[in-house]
Design a protein around this nucleic acid. Structure first.
Length: 311
DNA sequence: GACGCGTGGCA
DNA sequence: TTGCCAAGCGT
């Protein structure tokens, strides 16, 4: 974990994968639960897929969990984590950042660890005012030049801490920054202009229907296809989401959920019979179902409207 | 290089 | 309320 002194590659790997695009605050309690349940990579490798996906529920980017399982099995099969950046990079779910971070933090290798924090710090330091995507190679050269031969892992964590707390995207606290005397962005008087912002993404709205099939205090859940949105996760049954308005009839509830690249308006409608493979999940134990946030919110919305009607 | 892929916090 | 952003990866 951030700031934690550790060299156990399993812990470093697990925390780094969890932290991909996910905040420390969100990860910390989940990391502890994961570790308590599967203390070693061998234990994780032996776990059932659905148990791991369920434990990951709510963390998002579920391909990470699928890759985590595949990676754990590969590592357990070969008797442990490889200790070089090059070999780590070949494992599922381990890209350039994570391979470098594990090599440096867990194995004490010199590796150039580049995440968005490092990119921003370096871009400001050197006054790079084009979008990051156009300056990847230049930033790598500059980050390489900054990285010490010994202690690359500590250096990387220090750079990431600097980026997260002082050299923030907005309202950087340059007066507290040890690099400000050498920083071109600070010298410009407008450090926030560096690097140039990414192009804004358009977020269309999609519509969907989820079926509420209830019997004896249980609802019918299904498992989504292994690939694509919420791949492999537990879900309410229903047709694929579309760009068109899908439902004009009565709904038990509607939830709006924002994904990375679209907004979803999901109507939950009553249905009588299961139409595909799945299982009955007791509503009293719905939190054990491993539902991603979209479906957890959908079910909460139905139960809440029911409570209000009864009141 | 660009896009698909979740979620929650914050201004 | 809306948009931005987060210790990225796979295709």
């Amino acid at each position: 974990m951030p700031g934690e002194e550790t060299s156990d590659p399993y812990r470093v790997w697990l925390s780094e994968v969890m932290l991909q695009q996910t905040t420390v605050a969100a990860v910390t309690p989940r990391f502890e639960r994961f570790l308590a349940r599967w203390p070693t990579v061998e234990a994780l490798a032996a776990a059932a897929d659905e148990d791991v996906l369920s434990e990951w529920a709510g963390l998002g980017y579920y391909a990470r969990a699928r890759n985590l399982i595949a990676c754990a099995r590969e590592v357990a099969g070969r008797g442990g984590f490889p200790d070089t950046e090059e070999e780590l990079r070949k494992l599922p779910g381990i890209g350039g950042y994570t391979a470098a971070a594990i090599a440096a933090i867990a194995f004490g290798r010199r590796a150039v660890v580049i995440d968005t924090n490092v990119e921003r710090v370096v871009a400001r330091l050197h006054g790079i005012d084009v979008p990051i995507a156009e300056a990847k190679d230049r930033i790598r050269e500059l980050a390489d030049a900054l990285t010490p031969q010994v202690g690359a892992g500590d250096f990387a964590q220090a750079m990431m801490d600097l980026g997260a707390t002082i050299c923030r995207p907005r309202a950087p606290e340059c007066t507290k920054c040890p690099l400000s005397p050498d920083c071109k962005a600070f010298a410009s008087g407008e450090p926030e202009r560096f690097p140039a912002p990414k192009r804004k993404l358009v977020r269309p709205t999609k519509h969907g229907i989820a079926q509420w099939i209830e019997r004896d205090g249980c609802i019918w859940l299904i498992r989504r296809p292994a690939k694509g949105m919420l791949g492999g996760m537990a879900a309410l049954p229903g047709p694929e989401w579309t760009a068109d308005t899908a439902n004009e009839g009565p709904a038990l509830a509607r939830v709006t959920h924002v994904f990375t690249h679209f907004r979803l308006e999901l109507d939950i409608v009553a249905a009588s019979e299961p139409e595909r493979e799945g299982w009955w999940q007791a509503l009293s134990q719905i939190s054990d179902a491993g539902l991603p946030t979209l479906y957890r919110r959908a079910i909460d919305a139905v139960l809440e409207s029911r409570t209000k009607l009864a009141a």
